[in-house]
Write a protein that binds this DNA or RNA. Structure first.
Length: 754
DNA sequence: CAGCCTCGAGTTCC
DNA sequence: CTCGAGGCTG
């Protein structure tokens, strides 16, 4: 499809004008696509060819040159995109509530967390959740200095110039009392009126039809030319803040009011609620006004009002505990199920995907939807209980589709009255469609898995995709499409191959790469540089990238933090192997015994497995036992994860592959957690007895923030025991082991809250 | 031992 | 974003 550089001088002026216009649109669209997606629609080579032709026409017919000529942008190559901005305070996402009862549970969790504080009334703010794009705006001495997108929450893109065009974003904060430095956060959106007007303008000019306000706002913000953004009349609601140089309010409500005083628009439906009933009433009020607000919203956000309590309630992985988004019910649509395809994932999981006759659901055309697993299609849950009234899903059925959380399309229901005659239940394959290996479903597991391992091309590709994914190696220019291509071409079989890619076929590799579809000289060189840059890698990223089952981002980080460096991790896992094996045998023996006992009278109590197994098995060295116990003693790592880890490193082929990879890398040791000024950093703390001023989870959250490890039981590794009244065996054990024991007040003093 | 919480894995569309 | 399951708590 590539346009070549035909001689442009021979073109008539009118032909040149038409061609110039066409190329301008094509290239602009490609620019937009490039920045909105990971994968450009146009290959680099094609893009370069079109661009050259565009410039050639411009040179030959200078009169045609447009004011907004793309030649202006040659200097700042479009591939550069926007500069990255690291959010000083990450931009988190929110947990969701779908039912009133979820909100009640949320409030109940809050009450439980603070139950020690008698008489404490928890107030919450409630406000519409705007369906737009979050942005973070940095103000220094009241001046707007930089604005960024949310990005992945940790790193966003610098879109300052575009944000400056938004009237509701003040250049200079009004009033007084603002912190020296403050990052104001809020939502950029496009009103319904503006969206309609834009489409009308676009139609008059024969331009494109914009699908929905949200995507249009997103596209507008990512314009390289701010004058385009300026024409879109975007708006902004402020509702939060990130980094601040000093505390400026006591409550959420007060803080947002202040944002209003400083010149931001705050949502008129922002309200302080004193109890659950008021929260839900406000939700239903907003829902009833949804159609007349003039902009898209997708729910209501509640936040704990008291900022100090927010801090104490804390965070889960990527979301605050103290806030929740109450979503409106999803839109539904009926359509025909044309086929059921089976995809094979990284772990071999066979996942059924519904191919649908395209249908619009909530403003987006949906043609695929997940069917979860074998049982879901059959109309049963994994315990054999009927779901959807036991209705199975068949090819040819009319099915009801919705977008779960307004994103992931799911098949929710089947219309049996419209089921075609002669249809048969779907036969879920027991053989991997990708490699022909047997697909096995373990007892108690809801997924069927291909047993082919790395023989299975689908698994191999998925593993590579995982390896280059954002939380893993994240190599620029080597996305999922690219590794897939390289794998198909036989250039990359396993992760280590990525690091030999430059010299794979001798000095001519770059040239060969350019001969492939989609690669130009520049992109090839950039790719090699990006790969070289990633030879230095954080330990946690490396662990995660290996793609070991049950070992995700969080567990990888925990492991990295615990063992500190690659060699220590490797040594520990190797050492733990004999103990792990023995442990598995003991587990198996216990299962047999348990079955027998259950047969007998269900009375026999099985003694703690591990202790018994160790006692009976002197063959396993003390060191190995120690290594295994240390591993499974890490918070969040139990038997399953431990076995998966140790086994992966012990398995010969896998280990060899890991070794080949690591030979190319310089693994950066994990730095100690954020412990400046912490007196408990690195200590293992055990709480026992009744705590009177804190709840257990609160104490734990605080300790971990300060870099301490909180353990459940006292061992020789324990550094400190915090004992309240009623402490029993743990206290005794601590005394026996000579471990320091303090009371709750002393603990509070220690962590600076005395 | 059950229930709760958190994490991992898989998925769609832009 | 959801679901299932692993791990921990009471």
């Amino acid at each position: 499809m590539a346009d070549t550089e035909r001689d442009v001088a021979g073109l008539s002026e009118s032909a040149a004008r038409a061609e110039y216009q066409r190329l301008h649109e094509l290239l602009s669209a490609a620019d937009a696509a490039y920045f909105e997606k990971d994968n450009p629609e146009l290959s680099d080579a094609d893009y370069d060819a079109l661009k050259r032709r565009y410039l050639a026409i411009e040179a030959a017919f200078p009169d045609l040159r447009r004011a907004d000529s793309l030649s202006e942008k040659v200097g700042s190559a479009p591939a550069e995109g926007f500069a990255k901005v690291i959010h000083q305070v990450p931009m988190l996402s929110l947990a969701n509530a779908f039912e009133d009862s979820d909100v009640e549970d949320f409030v109940a969790r809050g009450k439980k967390f603070f139950e020690r504080e008698a008489g404490l009334r928890l107030a919450f703010t409630a406000e519409p959740k705007i369906d737009g794009l979050s942005a973070s705006l940095r103000y220094e001495k009241g001046r707007f200095v930089r604005g960024a997108t949310r990005g992945d929450g940790a790193v966003g893109e610098d879109i300052t110039a575009n944000l400056r065009t938004i009237a509701e974003i003040p250049d200079q904060l009004a009033g007084s009392g603002w912190p020296d430095v403050i990052e104001v956060r809020g939502e950029v959106y496009m009103s319904h009126a503006e969206f309609r007007a834009l489409n009308a303008r676009s139609a008059a000019e024969g331009g494109q039809v914009y699908v929905n306000p949200r995507n249009t706002a997103a596209g507008s913000l990512r314009q390289l030319d701010p004058s385009v953004t300026a024409k879109r009349n975007l708006k902004f609601f402020a509702y939060a803040w990130g980094h601040v140089s000093e505390r400026f309010a006591e409550t959420q409500f007060e803080a947002v009011q202040k944002l209003g005083e400083w010149g931001f628009t705050i949502n008129p439906h922002f309200k302080l609620c004193m109890n659950v009933e008021e929260m839900l009433a406000h939700y239903h009020l907003i829902e009833s006004r949804r159609a007349t607000l003039g902009y898209d919203i997708d729910g209501v956000v509640y936040k704990l009002d008291d900022l100090r309590l927010q801090e104490r309630w804390g965070y889960v992985a990527r979301a605050p505990r103290w806030a929740i988004a109450h979503k409106f019910p999803a839109e539904l649509a009926w359509t025909e199920l044309e086929a059921i395809d089976i995809q094979v994932g990284r772990t071999g999981a066979l996942s059924p995907v519904a191919r649908l006759k395209p249908v619009t659901v909530g403003g987006v055309v949906v043609s695929n939807a997940t069917l979860h697993n074998e049982d879901y299609i059959a109309g049963r849950d994994n315990e054999g209980n009927p779901i959807r009234g036991g209705k199975d899903i068949r090819v040819g059925d009319w099915v009801q589709v919705y977008r779960a959380g307004d994103v992931i399309p799911k098949v929710a229901d089947v219309d049996l009255d419209r089921r075609p005659a002669g249809s048969a239940p779907f036969q879920f394959p027991h053989i991997c469609p990708e490699c022909g290996s047997e697909a096995i479903r373990e007892e108690g597991d809801s997924v069927r898995r291909c047993s082919g391992g790395l023989i299975c091309p689908a698994q191999a590709v998925e593993k590579l995709r995982h390896f280059v994914s954002r939380a893993a190696f994240d190599i620029e220019g080597l996305g999922s499409k690219q590794v897939e291509q390289f794998h198909a071409d036989g250039w990359i079989d396993e992760p280590a191959d990525i690091f030999t890619l430059r010299d794979r076929h001798g000095p001519g590799t770059a040239q060969q790469l350019q001969d492939k579809d989609g690669w130009g000289e520049k992109s090839a060189e950039k790719l090699f540089d990006a790969i070289d840059a990633r030879q230095t890698i954080d330990l946690r990223r490396l662990i995660f990238a290996l793609g070991i089952r049950h070992v995700g981002e969080v567990v990888s980080a925990d492991l990295a933090r615990h063992y500190g460096n690659w060699r220590a991790l490797l040594a520990a896992l190797d050492q733990a192997y004999p103990a792990m094996e023995r442990h598995l045998e003991a587990e198996a023996a216990v299962l047999v015994e348990r079955a027998r006992a259950a047969d007998d009278a269900r009375k026999a109590r099985i003694k703690p497995v591990r202790a018994a197994a160790w006692a009976a098995e002197p063959a396993v060295s003390v060191q190995s036992r120690g290594a295994w116990d240390e591993l499974t003693g890490i918070e969040g790592i139990g038997d399953t994860v431990g076995v998966a880890l140790v086994a992966a490193f012990a398995q010969q082929a896998e280990r060899a592959s890991i070794n080949r990879l690591v030979a190319h890398l310089e693994v950066v040791a994990e730095e100690a957690p954020d412990t400046a000024g912490s007196r408990v950093a690195g200590k293992t703390v055990v709480f026992t007895g009744t705590l009177e001023k804190l709840t257990r989870s609160e104490a734990k959250a605080k300790a971990e923030r300060l870099g301490a490890k909180v353990a459940g039981s006292v061992s020789a590794n324990t550094d400190l025991v915090v004992a309240g009244p009623g402490a029993g065996s743990k206290l005794k054990q601590a005394e026996q082991l000579g471990i320091e024991v303090i009371d709750e007040d002393a603990w509070l003093a220690l962590v600076g809250e005395g």
